[in-house]
């Protein structure tokens, strides 16, 4: 008995079926046009239609508590089976930093004349990880949560947003570890540390926008999740996570346009702004021109564009 074609048993019952078909239904459904008219008369709406953009924003705002609760729940569930539990939230970034220090600081000695290399490196790694894991989580936000999407009604943008929020919470733990590292390496506490807040806000908006774009693409073509690690790794190496982009610019071996593009790429902008905010030996001269305008621009383009792009396919998520 193959999966195609009727099996013998229903055929035996065919007589029963025809009898059933002969019995007139008790509530005969009116003809097609009448049903639509009936629905219109009573103000019924088409099921599963995409809401307008303002309505969508309103729905999303109404679900803000779900978004935060879901993010926190995911974060908590992450280490719930470990003996040390939530201690790993801080331990993981610290161990990460230790590995990078061992490889780049001790083994390779890639200081390239960067003062305060360890704080420089660790800030870069943490800030980059925030963008990287947000985008990675965003790619799987819809395709990895089809059960949720197919069972419950909520604006689907809640999922990528929630995952980005989870990564932001994760980053805050990393930042706590970073403060310890900064103090250990004698970086003075300064007023400029307050700049970290607007930088994080801008970077979060950028990440959320890109993950919404990736969420839509990943929902249609799940294969993208396989490709993303390679794209992201390439992006990491050109973003000056482990080396200083402005040192590269001094070398004159690269055309000016290339160094400009490297310095204006969003990951590099947010990483260098955070270094500028936290590390006193990282000077404003090392930042590209109009750096704040670029940072705000990337956040707005990705945030608004990504949101609209995601909303355009709202009714198609989790289907087919």
């Amino acid at each position: 008995m193959g999966p195609i074609g009727p099996t013998p048993s229903p055929r035996v019952k065919a007589a029963d079926v025809s009898q059933v078909l002969d019995t007139p239904p008790q509530t005969p459904p009116p003809a097609g046009g009448d049903l639509a008219a009936l629905a219109a008369r009573h103000g019924l709406s088409v099921s599963g239609a995409r809401p307008s953009l303002p309505e969508y924003v309103r729905q999303l705002w109404a679900r803000r508590h779900f978004i935060t609760a879901f993010a926190t729940a995911k974060l908590t569930a992450q280490y719930s089976q470990a003996k040390l539990g939530q201690v790993w939230q801080v331990m993981t970034p610290l161990l990460n930093a230790a590995v990078y220090y061992f490889i780049f600081g001790v083994l390779l000695g890639t200081k390239h004349g960067v003062p305060d290399y360890i704080p420089f490196l660790v800030t870069g790694v943490f800030i980059w990880t925030f963008t990287q894991s947000s985008i990675m989580a965003g790619t799987r936000a819809i395709s990895g949560n089809l059960g949720l999407v197919r069972a419950l009604h909520f604006p689907r943008a809640a999922l990528p947003l929630s995952f980005c929020l989870q990564q932001l919470q994760q980053l805050l733990f990393s930042m706590a570890a970073l403060v310890v590292i900064l103090l250990c390496f004698g970086v003075p506490v300064g007023v400029s540390w307050l700049l970290a807040l607007p930088v994080l806000a801008l970077q979060f908006t950028f990440n959320a926008g890109v993950s919404m774009v990736m969420a839509r693409m990943g929902a249609k073509t799940p294969d993208i999740a396989q490709l993303m690690p390679f794209v992201l790794r390439t992006w990491m190496y050109v973003s000056g996570v482990m080396w200083s982009i402005d040192k590269l610019a001094d070398k004159d071996s690269l055309p000016h346009a290339v160094t400009l593009a490297l310095a204006a790429n969003p990951a590099a902008v947010y990483i260098d702004l955070m270094r500028f905010a936290l590390i006193d030996s990282f000077h404003a001269s090392q930042l590209p021109a109009h750096v704040w305008a670029i940072a705000v621009g990337w956040a707005l383009v990705a945030g608004v564009g990504g949101f609209i792009y995601f909303w355009k396919a709202e009714e198609t998520y989790g289907r087919g």
């Binding site: 639509a36 009573h42 709406s45 088409v46 099921s47 599963g48 239609a49 197919r150 009714e315």
Partner: peptide, 17 residues
């Protein structure tokens, strides 16, 4: 699932209150 608006319909329409 289609009544809930979680699956698209090929033909026809579902109206809900």
């Amino acid at each position: 699932k289609a009544v809930a608006g979680l699956l698209p319909v090929e033909n026809g329409r579902i109206f809900t209150h």
